[in-house]
């Protein structure tokens, strides 16, 4: 190897600018970054625009009454979204009620009470539960959960609470309640994992202050820790609610798929997403197709609003604690 040392100053370097090749590479790089980012933004804008465009015929034909008309009749070409909105809202409400309680409780246990040797495997399992594909949930719901509820739990509830309209009527196994519970299982991991992180993020000084005032750990959690993480936990629940609202395949498999509004939670129902899933490839008229696309548009707008609110809630909590989200 040559050890002849060049004088540093003899190296050819242009004094002011990059070589043409480097300047081009740098330019291409910057353009690439901006182009990719623009592509992403255009995709989202395109998503919205295409849904509006596709549902235009239906938007014009039915106007806002699409939202509260309960007739869904492909033969007469009359379409209204109310039964699906009802099914979606009720099944998601059941889901978030159950998943909210179970998920937050699990989060409290994992973040505050469980020793690491217990918390770690449980957290791991709960996170893996979130990864189970919805078609597998649907399969399990159809062949295990629905028969079990239909033969055991639903009759039991009806025997004691059957006087309430919500628990009256025929029992089929599949229906609103089954769908709601299955959705609850699917969104529990979302609530539990996010709420656990948010609870852990509550500053320790708050806990210590409460303990030093003579509160027990449980009282500290209930009166100090949970309230200070409240905005974020609500955000986590709203996020999970968003997932339940849009879940398609699992709901389709257990909700019964009947476009009727019934007071009973045991009755079959239909959701926005499952009617799209079932009828889209069979839609014969262009108005029918357009009406289905409008259901998709409603779903998109709802999920956009719900998720937007969830993010803002969680950001506001982390911000208020002086953290970068």
């Amino acid at each position: 190897m040559s050890l002849e040392l060049d004088s540093p100053r003899t190296v050819e370097v242009s004094q002011r600018g990059l070589t043409a090749r480097q300047a081009i590479a740098d330019r291409v790089f910057r353009i690439g970054l901006v182009a990719a980012t623009l592509t992403f933004v255009i995709l989202i804008a395109g998503l919205f625009a295409e849904l509006v465009h596709g549902s235009w015929e239906s938007l014009v034909a039915f106007g806002p009454k699409f939202l509260w008309s309960s007739e869904w009749n492909p033969v007469t070409n009359h379409f209204g979204a109310l039964p699906f909105i009802y099914g979606t809202v009720v099944s998601s409400a059941i889901a978030i009620l159950v998943a909210g309680v179970v998920g937050i409780a699990a989060a409290v246990f994992l973040a505050e009470f469980a020793p690491p040797a217990v918390a770690r495997p449980i957290s791991f399992f709960i996170e893996l539960l979130a990864a189970v594909p919805s078609v597998v949930f649907g399969l399990w719901g159809l062949f295990v959960l629905a028969p079990f509820l239909g033969s055991t739990v639903d009759p039991f509830i009806q025997r004691y609470l059957g006087f309430l309209p919500m628990f009256s009527g025929g029992i089929y196994g599949i229906g609103l309640l089954t769908a709601g519970l299955l959705l609850a299982l699917m969104i529990v991991p979302t609530v539990a994992a996010i709420a656990r992180d948010l609870i852990q993020a509550v500053p320790n000084e708050l806990r210590e202050a409460s303990i030093s005032l003579g509160a027990t750990r449980w009282e500290t959690v209930v009166h100090v820790v949970l309230p200070s993480a409240r905005a974020g936990i609500v955000g986590a629940c709203v996020l999970a609610l968003g997932r339940a609202l849009g879940e398609t395949i699992a709901a389709t498999m257990v909700i019964g798929n009947r476009p009727a509004i019934s007071a009973s939670l045991f009755a079959p129902s239909y959701t926005l997403s499952s009617v799209i899933a079932n009828e889209f490839t069979e839609a014969t008229s262009s108005l029918y197709l357009s009406a289905l696309l409008e259901l998709g548009l409603i779903l998109f707008v709802i999920s956009f609003i719900v998720n937007g609110c969830a993010r803002i809630l969680m950001w506001s909590m982390l911000r208020s604690q002086g953290r970068r989200p």
Binding site: V13, S14, Q15, R16, G17, L18, Q22
Partner: peptide, 11 residues
Amino acid sequence: DADVNPVVTRR
């Protein structure tokens, strides 16, 4: 100076 590239300067 406006026409001096900082990258080249750093070399």
